[in-house]
Simulated assay, not measured.
Amino acid sequence: MEMDFNLSIGMSAEVGITVELKDTAVSFGSGGVKVLATPMMIGIMENAALKAVDTNLPEGYATVGTHLDVKHLTATPIGMKAYAEAELIKIEGKKLTFNVIAYDEKEKIGEGTHTRYIIAVDSFIERTNEKLNR
C-alpha cells in the first residue's frame, strides 16, 4: 500500500548556529583545532533536511538519516554564524534525497547529498528495542 506523505520536490529548510567551543573539532574529538567540527556541520545539514519535510508527514511518521556524501570545504571559527540549507531533490517511495549546502558568514563551507527514509515511529522504536532481547 503506497501512502501519500504530502511531500514534493523543492521543499527546503535552513538551520543556523553560532559556533561555540562545544561545536568544535576539539570538543567532538574529530580534530585538534577549535573550529566548527565536521560532525557538527553534518548535524545542522541533517537537521535542515529533517525540518524541510518532517512537519508535513502524517501523525506517527518521521524521517531518519541513512546516508551522507558531504565535503567540508573550509574552516569556521568560534563566534561566527554557520548555517545549512537542505532541499528535497528526489522522492522514491519512502527514500528521500536532499541537496545540502553549509555556509558561514563569509563563504560556502560544505556541500553534498543526504538520504533520509520515512519511518512509522512506533514500529521503528519497537524493532530497534528488540535488539536488547537478542
Rank of each mutant, 00 (worst) to 15 (best):
V64L: 13
A86L: 06
I17T: 03
T74D: 13
V70K: 05
L96R: 02
I44R: 01
V35A: 03
I78V: 13
G43D: 05
V26M: 10
A49P: 01
H67C: 15
K22T: 06
H67F: 14
K34W: 07
I89D: 03
K71H: 12
A48E: 01
T66P: 10
G31R: 04
S30K: 12
V70Y: 06
L88P: 00
P77L: 09
I44N: 03
F98M: 06
K34I: 07
L50S: 09
E20R: 12
A75H: 01
G16D: 04
F98R: 00
A48R: 00
E87Y: 04
E20L: 12
I44E: 03
A82M: 03
E20G: 10
G31C: 08
I89K: 07
E20Q: 13
A52Y: 00
T74Y: 10
E59L: 14
V33K: 13
F98W: 04
G16F: 06
F98A: 03
L73F: 07
K34Q: 12
E59N: 14
L68V: 15
T63K: 02
D54W: 12
A48W: 01
V33T: 12
I91D: 04
F98H: 01
L68C: 14
L50M: 14
G29Q: 08
T18V: 15
E92M: 12
I78D: 02
V26R: 09
A75R: 03
A37F: 03
T66G: 15
P58D: 07
V64A: 14
N56G: 11
S30H: 11
T66R: 07
Y83V: 10
E87S: 14
V35F: 01
F98S: 00
E46S: 06
I42L: 11
M40S: 10
V26H: 05
T74E: 15
T74A: 15
K81G: 13
V26N: 08
T55Y: 15
I91P: 02
H67P: 08
V70H: 06
I89N: 07
P77K: 06
P58H: 05
A48P: 00
V33R: 11
G65I: 05
M80C: 13
I78G: 01
K34F: 07
I44G: 02
E20K: 14
S27L: 08
K94M: 09
M40K: 09
I78L: 08
L88H: 03
L36I: 03
A52P: 02
T18S: 15
